[in-house]
Amino acid sequence: MIEKAKVEQVLGKIRVGLMADGGNIDLVDIKDNIVYVKLKGACGTCPMATLTLKNWVEKTLKSEIPEVKEVVAV
């Protein structure tokens, strides 16, 4: 089982970059090693949000927490 605190720690590193562009990210839930997040602010409406989610958020979480299968925006 993935620790919520560990996910929040990694998201904290990602938040710095998102906040610089007027966005943010919240952890919603973790089920079956899938991390559910909500993109907020500028990131919630950005046309590049899907790429940000998969190429940056998911890649970073998987590299630091190998148990993560996927990251899904809700």
Results as ranks from 00 to 15, higher is better:
26 D>R: 11
5 A>W: 00
24 N>E: 13
20 A>S: 13
10 V>A: 04
11 L>C: 01
18 L>H: 09
21 D>K: 06
18 L>P: 00
15 R>E: 12
22 G>I: 01
16 V>S: 09
7 V>L: 06
30 I>K: 07
4 K>S: 13
22 G>P: 04
2 I>S: 08
14 I>P: 03
30 I>S: 03
7 V>F: 05
5 A>D: 15
33 N>G: 06
9 Q>H: 12
30 I>P: 07
33 N>D: 14
29 D>G: 08
13 K>M: 11
30 I>E: 01
27 L>C: 05
3 E>C: 10
2 I>H: 07
25 I>T: 02
16 V>F: 12
14 I>Y: 00
4 K>N: 12
24 N>P: 00
6 K>Q: 15
16 V>K: 10
6 K>P: 08
33 N>K: 14
7 V>C: 05
14 I>E: 01
5 A>N: 14
31 K>L: 02
17 G>I: 08
12 G>K: 03
2 I>T: 07
2 I>M: 11
33 N>E: 13
33 N>F: 05
14 I>N: 02
21 D>P: 04
22 G>E: 00
14 I>K: 07
34 I>E: 14
32 D>R: 08
12 G>V: 02
6 K>S: 14
19 M>N: 12
16 V>C: 06
6 K>M: 12
9 Q>K: 14
33 N>R: 12
22 G>A: 04
21 D>F: 01
13 K>H: 10
22 G>V: 03
18 L>Q: 09
11 L>N: 02
10 V>W: 05
8 E>K: 10
10 V>D: 01
2 I>V: 11
14 I>Q: 01
30 I>W: 01
29 D>Q: 08
7 V>H: 00
17 G>L: 08
30 I>F: 05
34 I>R: 13
15 R>M: 11
7 V>K: 06
27 L>N: 05
25 I>M: 07
32 D>L: 06
33 N>C: 03
4 K>V: 15
12 G>H: 00
15 R>S: 13
7 V>Y: 06
14 I>W: 03
29 D>H: 09
6 K>E: 15
18 L>A: 10
24 N>R: 07
12 G>R: 05
14 I>G: 04
19 M>Y: 09
20 A>T: 07
25 I>W: 02
16 V>T: 13
11 L>Q: 01
11 L>R: 03
25 I>L: 06
26 D>S: 10
10 V>G: 03
2 I>G: 07
23 G>M: 01
34 I>V: 15
32 D>W: 03
23 G>C: 05
15 R>T: 12
31 K>I: 11
4 K>I: 15
4 K>E: 14
31 K>Q: 14
18 L>W: 06
29 D>Y: 09
11 L>S: 00
34 I>Q: 12
20 A>F: 08
3 E>W: 05
8 E>R: 06
34 I>K: 15
11 L>G: 02
34 I>C: 08
11 L>I: 01
29 D>L: 09
21 D>N: 04
28 V>D: 03
22 G>D: 04
5 A>S: 15
34 I>N: 09
7 V>A: 02
10 V>L: 07
22 G>L: 03
29 D>C: 08
12 G>F: 01
28 V>P: 03
5 A>Q: 15
16 V>Y: 09
20 A>K: 10
8 E>W: 04
28 V>E: 07
13 K>F: 11
26 D>C: 02
8 E>I: 11
8 E>V: 10
27 L>A: 01
12 G>M: 01
29 D>A: 14
6 K>F: 12
15 R>C: 07
26 D>H: 10
3 E>N: 14
9 Q>N: 12
25 I>D: 00
